[in-house]
């Protein structure tokens, strides 16, 4: 029983990281109906910025987190402007392939400067409390609380601000809404900035929890987060959060009770089963096809 609670806590930690990344996928998808395959690699860049800020600038946790988030947000906006915006009216798949290309570019560009895995210094004094046999570390608490805080913040922005309203409007219609005076490009840039900075926050926290980072770390985590977004119903912000926690939970529990090599197998099989019964994810709705 204690073991189960311990694993649940670990699941919360991994799940909140997945959920943060999944949010980036889902926001971009909601607004551009495009899968930003470079997002996992932006997560990796976030982790590396954290590494740079912590190792070379010797900054404490909060400034490191902010540098990572702002840096990646800027990078995300630049990528959107240079690589995705010109393709807004091209076949949808060209943008997806471009995103794959951008992702590969980020990976290999980082590889040039960091051919070996890097070790991220400890930014948060690691205290561990044992409550009823379950050990809780300060890092775990910070990761979980910070993630949930960021998610609530985003949810509030999307639901209750003018910018959020504009985002939701654009995700419904990209032709009429700009005619009502909504600045399309600005809103898309803000969406990218928000989505990618959440990815960077996840990157920072991931690199604190699992301190060895390398340029390819974003691939697998990125795909998993993408799956979380799909499980929740892609385009749906609350769905992405739920999906992240579900996937994190499944992975940790499988690893806890079965040989760890079964982890991916079970996670992906569950995904397939879910898609059979709920083809549009847990909270997603099919877009009606008009005949």
């Amino acid at each position: 029983m204690t073991y189960l609670f311990q694993q649940l806590l670990n699941a919360m930690q991994l799940g909140s990281i997945y959920a943060l990344i999944a949010l980036g996928y889902t926001m971009v998808y909601g607004i551009l109906t495009m899968i930003n395959f470079a997002h996992g690699d932006l997560f990796m860049v976030g982790a590396f910025l954290c590494f740079i800020a912590a190792t070379f600038l010797k900054l404490p946790f909060v400034p490191t987190l902010l540098i990572s988030m702002i840096g990646v947000a800027l990078l995300g906006v630049v990528i959107e402007r240079l690589a995705y915006k010109p393709l807004r009216h091209a076949p949808r798949v060209s943008a997806v392939i471009t995103a794959l290309g951008v992702g590969l570019f980020l990976e290999n560009f980082t590889l040039v400067f960091s051919p070996y895995p890097q070790h991220v210094p400890e930014l948060i004094a690691n205290k561990t409390w044992v409550i009823a046999g379950v050990s809780i570390s300060s890092l775990q608490i910070i990761i979980i609380l910070l993630s949930i805080g960021l998610m609530i913040l985003l949810d509030q922005i999307v639901r209750h601000t003018m910018v959020g309203m504009a985002m939701r409007a654009i995700s419904w219609d990209k032709t009429i809404v700009p005619l009502m005076g909504v600045p399309l490009n600005l809103i898309i840039s803000i969406t990218f900035a928000l989505g990618t900075s959440l990815g960077a926050a996840a990157g920072t926290m991931y690199s604190l929890a699992f301190p060895v980072i390398d340029p390819y770390m974003g691939i697998m985590v990125g795909w998993k987060a993408f799956i979380s977004a799909v499980v929740g119903g892609i385009g749906n912000i609350r769905g992405a959060m739920i999906g992240g926690f579900i996937l994190g939970g499944v992975e940790i529990l499988v690893a806890a009770f079965m040989p760890s090599t079964y982890r991916d197998f079970v996670a992906f099989s569950l995904l397939l089963v879910l898609l059979i019964f709920r083809p549009y994810g847990i909270l997603g709705k099919p877009r009606p096809q008009k005949v």
């Binding site: 799956i227 079964y262 991916d264 197998f265 992906f268 995904l271 397939l272 898609l275 083809p279 549009y280």
Partner: peptide, 28 residues
């Protein structure tokens, strides 16, 4: 078979999952 009902991004996920499952089965 999944392609009968699922399309687009969701079918992409199915093929992705397929790739991972094959790899995972072989590993085991």
């Amino acid at each position: 078979i999944p392609s009968f009902k699922t399309r687009g991004d969701y079918l992409a996920i199915v093929t992705l999952a397929f790739n991972m499952i094959v790899k995972s089965i072989i590993e085991n």
